[in-house]
Deep mutational scan, measured.
Amino acid sequence: SKWSPSQVVDWMKGLDDCLQQYIKNFEREKISGDQLLRITHQELEDLGVSRIGHQELILEAVD
């Protein structure tokens, strides 16, 4: 995926409302499409996504 960080942010805006709070962290870390495809629970935790349910929603959406 050749998504830029801004495309990742646009994609996140289409996800569940409960995930919108994390967008600024993804933006700050400039998460690209390639990074998103390989993202782990630990990396999500580092991005402030501490709730497992929220991590799962992001990982499922990526899949």
Rank of each mutant, 00 (worst) to 15 (best):
S1W: 09
S1G: 10
K2M: 11
K2A: 08
K2Q: 10
W3E: 03
S4M: 08
S6E: 13
S6K: 14
Q7M: 11
Q7Y: 02
Q7N: 07
V8I: 05
V9Q: 09
V9N: 05
W11R: 03
W11I: 00
W11L: 01
M12V: 08
G14N: 15
L15S: 05
D16L: 03
D16M: 04
D16H: 07
D17P: 13
D17R: 09
D17Y: 09
D17G: 11
C18P: 08
L19H: 05
L19K: 05
L19C: 08
Q20T: 09
Q21L: 08
Q21Y: 06
Q21I: 12
I23E: 06
I23S: 08
N25I: 12
F26E: 02
E27A: 12
E27V: 08
E27Y: 07
E27P: 03
E27S: 08
R28I: 11
R28F: 06
E29V: 11
E29C: 12
E29F: 10
E29I: 08
K30F: 07
I31R: 01
I31Y: 00
I31T: 03
S32Y: 08
G33F: 09
D34G: 11
D34W: 10
D34M: 11
D34N: 12
Q35Y: 07
Q35V: 09
L36Y: 00
L37A: 12
R38V: 07
R38K: 14
R38H: 13
I39P: 05
I39V: 09
I39H: 04
T40S: 11
H41V: 13
Q42V: 08
E43Q: 15
L44H: 01
L44P: 02
L44Y: 01
E45S: 14
D46H: 14
D46E: 14
L47P: 03
L47K: 04
L47F: 04
G48K: 05
V49K: 00
S50H: 15
S50A: 11
S50D: 10
R51A: 15
R51P: 14
R51Q: 15
I52H: 13
I52E: 13
I52W: 10
I52K: 15
I52C: 10
I52Q: 12
G53F: 12
G53E: 15
H54M: 02
H54P: 01
Q55F: 00
Q55R: 15
Q55Y: 00
E56K: 15
E56C: 10
E56T: 12
L57Q: 09
L57I: 08
E60S: 14
E60T: 13
E60K: 14
V62A: 07
D63N: 14
D63M: 08
